[in-house]
Design a protein around this nucleic acid. Structure first.
Lengths: 244, 244
DNA sequence: TATTGTAGAATTGTCGACAATCTGACAATC
DNA sequence: GATTGTCAGATTGTCGACAATTCTACAATA
């Protein structure tokens, strides 16, 4: 593997020691900014100015720029020369595109995971699912959901698909959280994420067939994202109306 | 769309004017390095030192580092802190992983392309295919092949899938070219790329059904890459033997 | 009044220098 | 002789300053 870098550090059973990778300042800044976007603290369309941000983070602009470069590549920021960077604004059609690609890739991943899963991983997935089911805070639930999916990708053993999925979900996750934060800023209530599909997906991976698992995944993703997609569409429409 | 950036500039019929994006030094450096890797001038596993390279390119290290950051994200370079960056070395299993993901994504792309293709695009694809068929130089043929595929992705209208495929093919393309350049450095002849499948793929997209096109794509990719995969395996085995 | 030209401020692009870390060779120790 | 400590040389990580470009507001012009 060409260094499964920047993929979440999960225990690697093939070595008796954990890796001792000191995290560079750039990577810390990268994670910090990524979290800020994914938790809605840097909101949708917001301009990102280098000097104030570098000061706030306590690093030089050079480092910040390198981190921003990665975020641009992730698709979380967009920039024009001499005109600054902004947090992306997703349009509803893009959500469809992303979900479609995600169903393709993650469908393959869950099929493989169902074939390759070990007993210890079965227990881990189920424990995760129980944890997620008990979580009331929708923000934390969203983060747990992402982590659960990442475990599944890792179990599939396909590093390349894992990498692509990780990239694919960044903007999606941002969008879902932005919607939630928009809601708390004075719009009506966000419908709660449907939770039941998680258990069915995990059960299918642990004890079902690959085909069954892929089917559950598609149902799970479709159900989860239909609501958010509609919400985004309404949100965008309202914004447009406000401007005119 | 959040700026289809860094994707090859193709004409955009929705505007009467071409975009007037001045290319930043960073992007020039990025393209230059990318070409150097993809054409085998920076070869497999080679260490990339910042100071000499920056001098050779005539830019400062800060700029070079930002460009390298993107290449690391592309998966063409890998770096460890304070230990420098190297051009990636692919292992045969990775080629399988990449091809598998590519068949998933590009399969969807050609289905969509078959449904959405316009007459002018049909002519363009066929012209491209004829050009590719006449090209004798395997290096140029490889580049034309990549360009042809990129046109197809663009026709599919799925920006996200296009972006993922572009990323996916970088290391693949590098690998195929590295194999070719290794051959010219004293190994036996590389078997020529099979060409016939291109015409069948293009014809299927232009005049066939989505299912037929997807089937042709899978055949095309499998046929093209089986040879290269085997060659990589032999190459790696020889390297290992040489070290022991 | 609507359009165009023109400073100045604000912001990003670029650079060279210094600090932190790694590498490899050689000496010290057992 | 093999292992461990230590020191230079090389390379990367980080920073602050300067140059280039864009933006904003206001004046000039018709």
């Amino acid at each position: 593997m060409p260094k499964p870098a920047r993929i979440l550090p999960m225990p690697d059973p093939s070595s008796r020691f954990e890796k001792v990778n000191k995290e560079s300042t750039r990577d810390k800044v990268y994670r910090s900014l990524r979290n800020a976007i994914l938790s809605g603290q840097l909101h949708c369309g917001e301009r990102v100015k280098e000097i104030p941000l570098a000061q706030e983070l306590g690093v030089s602009r050079a480092i910040l720029r390198e981190a921003m470069q990665q975020l641009i590549h992730d698709g979380l920021l967009e920039s024009n020369s001499y005109r600054g960077a902004r947090v992306i604004e997703l349009r509803p059609e893009q959500i469809d595109e992303i979900i479609e690609a995600r169903i393709l890739l993650e469908g393959r991943a869950v099929r493989l995971a169902t074939e390759r899963i070990q007993n210890s991983q079965r227990e881990e997935l189920q424990a995760f699912e129980r944890l997620l089911n008990k979580e009331k805070d929708p923000l934390k639930a969203g983060q747990l959901d992402l982590l659960l999916h990442q475990r599944i990708w890792r179990i599939s053993g396909q590093a390349m698909i894992e990498k692509l999925l990780l990239q694919l979900t960044s903007p999606l996750f941002a969008m879902s959280l932005l919607m939630r934060s928009a809601e708390t800023r004075g719009h009506e209530q966000m419908p709660a994420l449907p939770r039941g599909t998680h258990k069915r997906l995990v059960d299918a991976i642990c004890f079902g067939t690959p085909a069954k698992a892929a089917q559950e995944l598609e149902a799970h993703l479709t159900e989860n994202w239909t609501a958010i997609r509609r919400r985004v569409a309404e949100f965008v429409a309202r914004e447009e109306a406000g401007k005119l």
